[in-house]
């Protein structure tokens, strides 16, 4: 697949503080790439360097295989941190200005306003918009030049659950059109729902990079419940169980390699017990994320 973004040894120091440390990363066309990390881990600084607002200390990066200039930025739609617009201009005028800077066709404006469902409020001043509308206008402005790649930094920050769901739907819709998306977030659930690949940053250092589908591969956890007094003891007799935990009335059995829920079900049935609840749980991204962060803090 074609490489959209390639980063080599990207470094940024703010005085003594190293915000981004020798970062190497590749993003391929069509990926929805999640950039994860706790607050202050260097996500926004990294994106700031990629978008030319933060000067690099050392290292390099290239967009679409060419050295980055302000012309390459015109092919990228990006919103970093908060939505930024002229408060005294209407949504429509703000987008016209974005289109002028990007050299985009002004005819796109109506279309992108439609995508983010702001057409009805387009002539109102930006300062009268709610936070959700501001975020949506930001996505519209990123889309106005019909970019090859979209960069969104915490696009659901500060939104209510409905607003979050709306933005998520918009992102999915855009991804379905085959656009490459880089999504920085600390909402792991968010990333797991929309991303195909993810990377984890911690204090400016890359901790992990890989496909989201790989999360939860390997160990399998089976949740089980049955009306039996000694279920906990019984489960320990099962040859496939590595460990057992009790959580909110359910037993969570961590399976050994090669054992699956059906083996556990079989085992219980042989003992004359019928499970009232049996479910396979994949490890969540959140769990993996916390593991990645804590693993490395042990090592370091």
């Amino acid at each position: 697949m074609e490489t959209v973004l390639s980063i080599q040894k990207l470094t940024k120091n703010f005085g003594k503080l190293c915000a981004v440390n020798h970062l190497d990363l590749e993003v391929l066309r069509g990926q929805v790439f999640g950039l994860l990390g706790p607050n202050g881990s260097g996500k926004t600084t990294t994106l700031g360097m990629l978008m030319g607002v933060v000067n690099l200390t050392s290292g390099s990066f290239s967009w679409f295989g060419e050295t980055a200039t302000h012309h390459t930025r015109k092919k990228i739609g990006a919103v970093l941190e908060h939505p930024i617009f002229y408060p005294y201009l209407s949504g429509q005028k703000n987008l016209e200005l974005n289109a002028m800077i990007k050299g985009a066709d002004p005819k796109n404006i109506a279309k992108v306003l439609d995508t983010v469902e702001l057409t009805a409020r387009k002539d109102d001043k930006y300062r009268t918009y709610s936070l959700g509308m501001k975020q949506r206008l930001a996505i519209a402005s990123a889309l106005v030049s019909d970019p090859i790649i979209l960069i969104l930094d915490e696009p659901t920050n500060g939104l209510d659950p409905m607003g979050i769901a709306e933005i998520r739907e918009i992102i999915k819709k855009i991804a379905a059109e085959g656009k490459t998306i880089i999504l920085a977030s600390h909402l792991l659930d968010e990333v797991q729902k929309v991303c195909t690949h993810f990377a984890v940053l911690k204090r400016g250092t890359l901790m992990h990079v890989g496909p989201v589908d790989d999360v939860g591969k390997g160990e399998e956890i089976v949740e089980v419940h049955a009306y039996h007094d000694d279920l906990g003891v019984l489960l320990q007799e099962f040859v496939g169980s590595a460990s057992i935990k009790r959580e909110s009335g359910l037993y969570q059995v961590m399976m050994k390699d090669g054992f699956h829920s059906k083996d556990l079900n079989h085992f219980l049935f042989d003992k004359g017990i019928v499970a009232s609840h049996l479910a396979t749980r994949k490890k969540s991204l959140e769990k993996q994320f916390l593991e990645i962060l804590s693993d490395t803090s042990h090592k370091s």
């Binding site: 030319g52 607002v53 302000h70 930025r73 990006a78 930024i84 617009f85 408060p87 990007k102």
Partner: peptide, 21 residues
């Protein structure tokens, strides 16, 4: 100073103006 206060300078650069432009 509005461009700094509203941070629109930053967005202008992100959108593809060079600092010189």
């Amino acid at each position: 100073t509005n461009e700094y206060q509203y941070r629109t300078l930053r967005q202008n650069i992100i959108d593809g103006l060079s600092r010189g432009e």
